[in-house]
Simulated scan of single mutants.
Amino acid sequence: MIPNSIDVSSRVSPRLTALLLSRINDPDTEQPVTLIAVRRFLADLLPRDFREAERLHRFDVSESLLDELDALIEEFDQNALALDFAQASASEALSRVIEAMLDDENNENPPTLSQVRAALLDGLGARLIGEGVLDDDEDDTLLAEIDALIEQFGENTSAEECLRYE
């Protein structure tokens, strides 16, 4: 399979990234992990009533992980490797948070991922929204994203290593 020339991982939500990484990093999972394998895994976790309703499209679950996976499968093929869709770096919004911490003259050392998480919990996201660095809706997923990066790389990893440069 030819790797996708665009950065498709930037279009994947932090929740789906965490799921993809959990399947990719599971030692009991057969390799290579494809999008359809992740979808089957997720569908098997859902209650039978939900699966039936989802199959019959009785209600809108447009924000669900299944819908997100289905859209990726439709666009890129069910056999696309899940690894190609797992974010290995921070989103643009989280990169701005990390850069704000790097630019803070009160920090003696570059922040770790756990320090970024603590700063977000202490209101850094809201402050950056107030300063116009982040849009109102960008703060919603930052904690889930930083948690996924911590799970992937460890809490003591330098946040600077996860910056996305575009």
Results as ranks from 00 to 15, higher is better:
108 E>M: 12
88 A>M: 13
51 R>F: 10
34 T>E: 04
62 S>E: 11
94 L>D: 05
46 L>G: 00
94 L>V: 10
41 F>K: 07
106 N>I: 11
45 L>T: 02
66 L>N: 07
56 L>P: 02
87 Q>Y: 11
108 E>S: 08
97 V>F: 11
58 R>A: 03
128 L>G: 05
66 L>D: 09
42 L>Q: 00
89 S>Y: 12
20 L>Q: 01
53 A>E: 05
41 F>S: 08
22 S>N: 00
103 D>C: 02
58 R>F: 11
38 V>S: 03
85 F>Y: 15
84 D>L: 11
124 L>S: 07
131 E>N: 15
41 F>E: 04
80 A>F: 12
22 S>T: 04
134 L>C: 10
18 A>E: 06
92 E>G: 12
119 A>R: 15
83 L>K: 11
109 N>V: 06
109 N>C: 03
79 N>M: 09
46 L>A: 05
52 E>V: 15
73 I>Q: 04
94 L>N: 03
17 T>Q: 06
90 A>C: 12
57 H>G: 14
125 G>E: 00
93 A>V: 10
17 T>A: 10
121 L>N: 07
15 R>W: 08
94 L>H: 03
25 N>M: 13
45 L>Y: 00
105 E>G: 07
17 T>C: 13
101 M>A: 02
84 D>V: 01
39 R>L: 13
128 L>I: 08
48 R>P: 03
129 I>P: 05
43 A>M: 12
50 F>V: 13
90 A>Q: 10
104 D>I: 09
78 Q>L: 11
73 I>F: 04
129 I>R: 09
80 A>K: 13
37 A>L: 07
23 R>K: 15
59 F>S: 04
73 I>T: 02
35 L>T: 02
69 L>D: 00
68 E>T: 02
31 Q>I: 13
71 A>I: 12
102 L>D: 02
113 L>Y: 05
47 P>L: 13
44 D>G: 06
66 L>P: 07
99 E>H: 09
74 E>V: 12
88 A>K: 04
37 A>V: 04
109 N>M: 06
50 F>L: 13
98 I>P: 08
17 T>D: 10
98 I>A: 03
88 A>D: 03
48 R>L: 11
81 L>R: 13
89 S>M: 13
91 S>D: 01
23 R>F: 15
97 V>G: 05
52 E>I: 15
